[in-house]
């Protein structure tokens, strides 16, 4: 996995090095971070069990078996941080961004009921369930973004509006699942991190997001804020989350690699091209 990541990094940095050496296309490097919020359907995890139950009401029993109570509309969160480089061309009106990005997807299974039953383990003819309050799954992906930007206003303005078609691609590097027990007295023994939730998230995921935003700052440094409306997921970065679409916001800071050129033009108060 490490060698794959290294190879990706080398490949990604090649175009930047080449165009920078040529000196004809502007290059900006920076950091970006953001978060997305997806809405979709969640299914009951495989080890969540339903049990029949009775309540004694007015001397008659009522069987209120909660079939599939956990299914329903829910949400998935993600956040990411990365190092990026942007190639700007055609008088800095068009840009292509890529780099290295770490993304974490957070899925919390928290049904409306006070607790759910989690099939903990079996031992011969005995089965052990845990009453659990939440199951938190965090999946860690490392990959790269690939974004195309069109800046609607010319360089040199303090605030530039832009449209963007972005995407992010990632490989699963780690996953952890934490079960919180309903009865806190057994949380240490039966809760905590569980290895197996019955289904793994997809090892490769992508997201595509049309966006609009603003580039603030005239020359150095530049701050970007853009809004993903909407953001679509390709493959599932959570074990039991499906049919997703969401919204997000991204912040980035960029530094031009040829700062001297910017500094030289800045006192003139005019676009440098």
């Amino acid at each position: 996995m490490k060698s794959k990541i290294l190879l990706c990094l080398v490949l990604l940095s090649c175009p930047f090095a080449l165009v920078h050496a040529a000196g004809k296309i502007k290059v900006k490097v920076g950091v970006d971070m953001g978060c997305d919020y997806y809405v979709g359907d969640r299914h009951d995890p495989r080890y969540v069990k339903q049990l029949g139950s009775f309540s004694d009401k007015e001397e008659t029993y009522s069987n209120y078996n909660p079939i599939l109570a956990g299914d329903g509309v829910d949400h998935l969160q993600s956040w990411y941080v990365g190092l990026t480089g942007e190639l700007l061309f055609h008088k800095e009106r068009f840009g292509v961004t890529t780099g290295l990005r770490y993304t974490q997807f957070i899925d919390i299974y928290d049904p409306d009921a006070a607790y759910f039953y989690w099939d903990s383990h079996a031992d011969g003819s005995d089965v052990y369930y845990v009453r659990a309050r939440t199951l938190l799954q965090r999946n860690h992906y490392v990959g790269f973004p690939l974004e195309f930007r069109y800046l609607a206003s010319r360089p040199g303005r303090i605030c530039r509006f832009y449209f963007k078609l972005g995407s992010s691609w990632g490989f699963l590097v780690a996953s952890d699942n934490k079960l919180t027990c309903y009865d806190s007295s057994v949380d240490d023994e039966l809760g905590g991190y569980v290895d197996d939730v019955g289904k793994d998230p997809d090892r490769f995921v992508g997201s595509v997001y049309p966006a609009f935003g603003f580039r603030i700052g005239r020359y150095f440094p530049l701050f970007n804020i853009d809004f993903h409306l909407p953001s679509f997921l390709i493959n599932m970065p959570a074990s039991y989350f499906y049919y997703d679409m969401g919204v997000g916001v991204q912040l980035s800071v960029q530094l031009p690699t040829d700062r001297a050129a910017y500094d030289r033009r800045d006192p003139m108060g005019i676009p440098y091209y």
Binding site: Y117, S125, D126, V127, Y128, C181, D183, V186
Partner: peptide
């Protein structure tokens, strides 16, 4: 036919 323990306490049988 399984004996069911919930939170490590005998709770029923499936």
């Amino acid at each position: 036919a399984k004996t069911l323990y919930v939170d490590n306490k005998l709770s029923g049988a499936i």
